[in-house]
Design a protein around this nucleic acid. Structure first.
Length: 851
RNA sequence: GCCGGUGUGGCGAAAUGGCAGACGCAACGGACUUAAAAUCCGUUUUCGCGAAAGCGGAGUGAGGGUUCGAGUCCCUCCGCCGGUACCA
């Protein structure tokens, strides 16, 4: 194939058009206030998840979403929108840093090289990005504003009364550091000694680092945290008004994991302390037959009796040696040990034993539970193993086998007896509250966001330490630039690499800089804002630009009109970005409450073997090779023709050839090859009226392509254009007006060939001035689609027996009469007992017979 | 385990509750060609009958249900893909 002549000369005209678009800044989008800005047009902000520019280059998965958004961007421009369609680089990250460790080359150098490669690849596909808005999260000008946003977060707190972030000045307590949205805490983190860095949870697979497969251990370290949990309720509630896939909303919902329940205080026997537990089932309090503390619970040492001290110490040691993963395996058999201590059940004064067990986690609730083995699977398994008593306190209305964890009616529960679960919950909660023994409580699975990394290649914190206290640098000192380092190798200790830049670290005689850097998510948390106003030197985004491109927060939450990317960011990037956006909105810096109004996930593209593409499987498709072979238009078109955008689907080179042939047919609609092998305008193209059939298919195509673009059904839009081209190919003469419409419809999908044909037709015919992309989107004429006659089917008991052509507006009665006068059909009906006749105009007549 | 998605020809897929398989791939036949490629035209869910035009049956993972009529709606089950995992 590669040695063969191309079916149409895309190797010549595709680069030609790409250059022309670049030279003429064809896709530059002016901002409000600029001379060529047209305020009368509506806005459309369509965004891709920007890539990490890895050394591997682009794979065919990237352009899937990018092509979809490019088609929509082009379509909206043709419909008169001001379209914001930008691209940039999420360029901090571990691979560049590790490459630097290996080679000594500065990450900035490799990053710049990779960006060059990525950008070149994207430009070869002909995307209509406004490259003048390109951003790179690692440039000082971008880092400056990332750090500035950190300052806003640091200098604010969440006011529970107003339910929003406010400047820290409005906090009236005596320890502002305890309420800041950015705070320092000693936290267990994934530390990889081999790599010399902490890793995010998602970078740890089976207790080993994803990169290199080195062991990872949990170790407590001093970390910066962001108080995302304060926004748990709003992050949850805000989902309702967003046009996101339900599955993604559900993922966020589960991740946030809001639950309603109660704190209950248990007195301890012979110890001056109480244990507070969190439960979602306070109604089962009468059934609590023992209590379990997490092995790390602070009271364990205090309450353990002399006799149990060795057993408890042994157990804690065993638990400590287990990997996090082992410990979280729910199917594992329960383990635990008695502390020797007893607690008192506040409702009935029962004395219940206190155990420690690793199935109680220290990070959730209070790290202590009341165990109700009759109505909780885990407690039941534990009680069974250690022969602890089981008391039924909820009765199901239906028979159940095994442990009953559902809702029913309270029994054996004193004041609660006879109450349904929901009522029992409120009753016991107020009972506890009245006596100061407990209170209603809401808990989240969501944890505060661990925001610091012991890495070089990230944003430095704009933070200074002095006398054991932290403070920020002033906004005028931003950006805090990374120091130059010759050696990126890990120190071998927990100390971040920045510690090696001794001059940089030393801020003053007595003050030192923070050594941690921010995680990669920091830059991606707000890049969609910077795109609105990427060169603004006074603000992270200009107020007018933000108000225009994000909307004014009217009826809908507003923000980016359409955001397309993979599902893998469902709970990380998409949650973090919403959190930052909310803080900035609360502080008055942004007009809208949410960042992304509509979200669409593209499905993964699999290898030709139906497996996930990977280097080890050797099934990776390289976009450059496809484009060399078939051209950018065919590549784009195939990516969209494969199947529904959101669906997972395998690659097929034969499929690429199919759309390539289609584009070649479009080419030959207008051109033919002469004796010298030159493409000349075909004589078959003529200024003639389209036939009624051509007109019908043309307008059906306008209608379907337009509708399908609205629902992102690119594959069916393309098949309709194929139908249209097949119709025109079959014709002796091609009406030039039909070609004109077809090229306009095709131009968002296959922009190069559309422009090239448009330009060539302009040499002979009128109506081809300017660019195909600059044309108004066509409108279909419904009257041309209506046929005078329609074919209906005649059915007996729902089975098709005959077909019949009738006037399109025939009534039910006329249809039935027509059926009854159809001899062949009546012959089949002869002798049958017709009980009912269903006639549907334009569709069918169904005779229901008995026997 | 729980949650979500999905299941239609040889393959990718299409079908406001109304003729299942549009469009594309592959395959087969024909035209063009010395020949091939490319291109163009045609056939192509499957089984049975027929020389053929055609006729008849079955058919959207399995089983049930609602309906004049179900790929589409409801119930039960199975497979595959993804997420999540002791969150009290």
């Amino acid at each position: 194939m590669s040695s063969q002549r191309k079916q149409y000369p895309f190797p010549e005209f595709e680069p030609k058009w790409q250059n022309r678009w670049e030279e003429t800044s064809a896709y530059r989008t002016p901002n409000p206030g600029e001379p060529d800005f047209d305020a009368a047009r509506p806005k459309y902000y369509v965004l891709d998840m920007f890539p990490y520019p890895s050394g591997e280059g682009l794979h065919v998965g990237h352009p899937e979403g990018y092509t979809a958004t490019d088609i929509l961007a082009r379509h909206h421009r043709m419909r008169g929108f001001n379209v914001l369609h930008p691209m940039g680089w999420d360029a901090f990250g571990l691979p560049a840093e590790q490459y630097a460790v290996k080679t000594g080359q500065h990450p900035a150098v490799t990053t710049a090289r990779n960006i060059g490669k990525f950008k070149g690849q994207l430009q070869r596909i002909g995307f209509s990005y406004d490259w003048s808005r390109e951003v790179n999260t690692t440039t000082p000008d971008y880092v400056r504003w990332t750090q500035w946003i950190f300052l806003q977060i640091y200098h604010s707190w969440f006011n529970p009364v107003t339910n929003r972030a406010e400047p820290i000045a409005t906090y009236t307590g005596d320890d502002p550091d305890s309420v800041r949205l950015a705070y320092v805490a000693e936290m267990p983190v994934n530390w990889c000694p081999e790599l010399g860095t902490v890793l995010a949870n998602e970078e740890v697979v089976d207790g080993k680092s994803e990169v290199g497969g080195f062991p990872v251990e949990r170790r407590p370290m001093r970390q910066w945290m962001l108080r995302i949990t304060a926004f748990g309720d709003r992050l949850l509630a805000g989902l309702d008004a967003l046009d996101w896939p339900d599955s993604i909303k559900l993922l966020q919902k589960n991740w946030i994991g809001r639950s309603e329940g109660a704190f209950v205080d248990f007195a301890l026997e012979g110890v001056e302390a109480k244990v507070t537990v969190y439960t979602t089932r306070p109604d089962t309090l009468f059934g609590a037959t023992y209590m379990v503390l997490a092995p790390e619970h602070t009271l364990v040492a205090q309450i353990t009796t002399a006799g149990q001290r060795d057993a408890v110490a042994d157990y804690i040691k065993t638990v400590g040696s287990k990997s996090e993963r082992d410990r979280q395996d729910a199917s594992r058999e329960k383990t635990g040990v008695f502390t020797g201590a007893y607690a008192v059940n506040p409702v009935n004064g029962e004395r219940i034993p206190v155990w420690i067990a690793d199935y109680v986690l220290t990070g959730y609730g209070t790290g202590a539970i009341m165990a109700v083995p009759a109505h909780d699977e885990r407690d039941h398994a534990f009680a069974t193993k250690f022969s602890l008593p089981v008391i039924e306190v909820v009765r199901s209305t239906e028979p159940v086998d095994g442990c009953f964890a559902g809702e029913g009616v309270a029994v054996n529960s004193g004041i609660l007896d006879g109450l349904p679960t929901a009522e029992a919950k409120t009753r016991i909660t107020s009972w506890l509250q009245d006596r100061g023994l407990g209170r209603a409580a809401v808990q989240f699975k969501l944890r505060d966001w661990l925001f610091s990394r012991q890495r070089y290649w990230g944003e430095p914190f704009p933070v200074i330490w002095e006398g054991g206290r932290h403070r920020t640098v002033g906004a005028e000192e931003l950006p805090v630039r990374l120091p130059e380092l010759a050696d990126f190798k890990p120190t071998g200790t927990a100390e971040p690499p920045l510690a090696k830049a001794t001059d940089w670290v030393r801020y003053s005689e007595t003050a030192r800089r923070e050594l941690n850097t921010m995680p990669q998510w920091a830059g991606s948390c707000w890049y969609y804002l910077r795109f609105c106003d990427p060169r603004n030197e006074d603000r992270f985004v200009g107020e007018e630009a933000a108000r225009y491109w994000l909307g004014d927060g009217g009826e809908k939450p507003g923000g980016v009109d359409l955001y397309v990317g993979g599902t893998e960011h469902a709970v990380l990037h998409l949650l973090y970005a919403r959190f930052w956006h909310m803080v900035l909105h609360d502080l008055g810096h942004l007009p809208t409450p949410e960042p992304f109004q509509r979200l669409v996930n593209q499905g993964m593209i699999l290898g030709t073997d139906g497996q996930k593409m990977s280097k080890s499987r050797g099934n990776v498709i390289n976009p450059d090779e496809v484009i060399n072979e078939y051209g950018a238009d065919a590549f784009r078109l195939y990516e969209m023709f494969m199947g529904p955008l959101e669906q997972m689907k395998p690659w097929s080179m034969k499929g690429v050839e199919g759309v390539y042939r289609f584009l070649a047919r479009v080419w030959r609609l207008a051109l033919h090859e002469d004796q010298e092998g030159q493409w000349q305008l075909s004589d078959a193209v003529a200024e003639i009226e389209p036939t009624p059939a051509q007109l019908r298919v043309l307008h059906a195509t306008i209608k379907k392509v337009t509708a399908d673009l609205g629902t992102l059904s690119f594959n069916t839009a393309i098949s309709q254009m194929m139908v249209c081209v097949n119709e025109l190919t079959a014709a002796e003469k091609r009406p030039v007006s039909a070609l004109r419409t077809l090229l306009v419809l095709l131009s968002p999908f296959a922009p190069h060939i559309a422009e090239e044909l448009w330009e060539r037709l302009d040499t002979r015919f009128g109506g081809f001035t300017g660019s195909a992309h600059a044309q108004a989107w066509p409108q279909h004429d419904e009257t041309l689609l209506i046929e005078n006659e329609v074919e209906i089917v005649l059915q007996i008991n729902g089975k098709v027996r005959e077909k019949l052509v009738v006037p399109k507006d025939a009534t039910r009665e006329q249809l039935e009469a027509a059926a009854r006068s159809h001899d062949g059909f009546m012959a089949q009906l002869a002798g049958k007992d017709v009980v009912k006749v269903v006639a549907v105009p334009g569709k069918l007549v169904n005779f229901v017979v008995r026997g």
